[in-house]
């Protein structure tokens, strides 16, 4: 450690100024804005804050946001696990292509994703015009919001699992097969314990993004207050309405969720690194 440090920054002042710079940037770019959110939200006192949060439409927005996350996370949990399982345990044509395709939501801007869904499932879209014959409306109602949120967040779980499952290899599972275990039993007793912490990490990230997604949701939401207005959209609406305190009160809820996510993430990372360095007996616990 000491040797390495000496090599990077020979002199004390280099090291100190680098650390100082990093801290200053973190403070200015990250910490102060978060503090400002909370001070603004509470600038007119706790009762005004509570009044803003307990507002009928804010509660509706919170409910909808949690509902969307509650549908998105399990869907992507299953999808991500199945995808990671298939590309790391089997060899098949198109496997590399599949690994690349999973990154599309990262590469595409969320607004574009929203527009794509709108053009496909909207009233004049390919699928939308067919669906409307059966009186099925996906866009501008909650299913549309869930669809784009699933799209935007679908790589997180798979991206967490694929490197880990590749590194772990399939020896343990093969041993299970040899000993005559069923597929489900192998997954439950061998695979799942091995990937547990990476899986939870993926879920934490998926949840954070699902709760905070703005761009794609904004396109397909229709902005109906009390019905299709999610918390991030609600923040924008309040801000445009000159209700700065209300906007920051809602924003502080989002920031609160983000902070909880960070704590959960730090905890999971800590458990994950312990699990990876642990002896096999401990690792299986």
């Amino acid at each position: 450690m000491a040797v390495q440090n000496r090599r990077i920054g020979d002199q004390l002042w280099v090291r100190r100024s680098l650390i100082g710079l990093a801290l200053a940037i973190t403070l200015i770019m990250l910490v102060i804005p978060v503090v400002v959110i909370f001070t603004q939200a509470l600038s007119t006192g706790w009762s005004a804050f509570a009044g803003n949060v307990m507002d009928e439409y804010t509660l509706d927005a919170i409910g909808l946001t949690l509902f969307v996350a509650a549908l998105t996370v399990p869907l992507n949990l299953v999808f991500g696990t199945a995808l990671a399982w298939s590309v790391t345990r089997f060899r098949f044509p198109g496997r590399k292509l599949l690994i690349t395709l999973i990154d599309i939501p990262f590469a595409v801007s969320p607004v574009v994703a929203g527009l794509l869904y709108l053009l496909l499932y909207g009233r004049n879209g390919w699928l939308g015009s067919w669906l409307s014959n059966y009186d099925v409306q996906l866009m501008f109602s909650w299913p549309g919001i869930v669809m784009v949120t699933v799209f935007v967040t679908c790589p997180f779980v798979a991206r967490e699992l694929i490197p880990l499952m590749q590194q772990q290899g399939s020896e343990e599972e093969e041993a299970g097969v040899v000993l005559g275990a069923s597929g489900w039993r192998i997954f439950r007793k061998i695979t799942l314990p091995n990937i547990k912490w990476a899986l939870i990490y993926g879920v934490v990230l998926t949840n954070a993004r699902a709760v905070g997604e703005f761009g794609a949701v904004s396109v397909v939401s229709g902005n109906v207050r009390g019905e299709t207005n999610t918390l991030p959209l609600h923040v924008e609406l309040l801000y445009q309405d000159y209700n700065i305190v209300g906007a920051f009160a809602s924003a502080s809820l989002l920031a609160g969720i983000a902070i909880l996510t960070l704590i959960a993430k730090a905890f999971v990372e800590w458990r994950q690194s312990r699990a990876e360095h642990a002896t096999p007996e401990e690792g299986g616990a």
């Binding site: 909207g122 004049n124 879209g125 939308g128 866009m139 501008f140 229709g222 902005n223 109906v224 207050r225």
Partner: peptide, 20 residues
């Protein structure tokens, strides 16, 4: 009475695309 608020060009697009 439910209210939807956004820029009016965006609202027009949404109505054309099926916001009832």
């Amino acid at each position: 009475i439910k209210q939807s608020h956004a820029g009016s060009s965006k609202q027009a697009q949404a109505i054309i695309q099926g916001l009832k």
